[in-house]
Nucleic acid binder design. Sequence first.
DNA 1: ACGATATGCTCCCTTACGTCA
DNA 2: CGTGACGTAAGGGAGCATATC
Length: 280
Amino acid sequence: MVVVEEDLGLTLGLRSPTKHAPLRLDLMVSSPSSSPFPRWSDLLSSTSGRRSSETPLRRGIDVNRAPEAERESEEEEEEEEEEEDEEGGAASPNSTLSSLSGKREAERASDEEEGGDGSRKKLRLSMNQSAILEENFKEHSTLEPKRKVALAKQLNLRPRQVEVWFQNRRARTKLKQTEVDCEVLRRCCEELTEENRRLQKEVQELRALKLLSPLFCAHATPPTTLTMCPSCERVSNAKASDRRSRRPAPAAAAGARPQAPWVPIPLRPTRLHAQLQLYR
DNA sequence: ACGATATGCTCCCTTACGTCA
DNA sequence: CGTGACGTAAGGGAGCATATC
């Protein structure tokens, strides 16, 4: 499966009204000054301004750190998974029923054993883990199986956790991009509404001007005649000298519409005509 | 060559949990 | 201390691509 980075939520298909360029937002981490390891809540806090104080993670408490014994067993499990991965395919336990066989089912079973009562465990990633994941996401927003396993090993996480993190990260990026796109569209709509209002006003002023000066149209200089081709009904304002009958061009004008005598059409000033004159 | 099936991936929506005000 | 809002890890379904038979 060929995956293009731009299709992964970074651009949503909405186009800029001006340049037909995809609206893009750089959502990557940009070396924050306050903390070396930014969290997503910080990156996105421009909209919700909560979470101003330090989190336990910031205070140095890693809630995600497992006891050493469990840690070792997890590492053994990861090594087993890595071996399986290198034999072929990624160990990615998915929830699809058809996929719940074999390796995945075994992994889920092992997870439940860890959880004990079967309740869902929710682990917070440490700042360091988040930062490394963020760095990797910056390089590429998708995960190859080998990179996933390598990252998992580096971060002392299960490959499934790395996979989920990337998945959620892509979702956040897309959500943020959607918000930006909506804002751009909203502004565009406002501008067009304002432009429409302005034009309506202009039309009203022009109409009022016409009512006040009834001779206005008479003083305008409309073309006295137009010419129309009887066959194709095209209208032309060619000069009188060019209005004489023309013979249909022979073979040279192959594909061209056969010429017919052009007939002058007397024109009277109309409202449309006046408008056209005014807008010239 | 073609269809059925299995597998693995991503996307999307939802749920559950942790944290904070 | 209880509660609601919010952020986020994780569960689960659907769709798609690929490999195998």
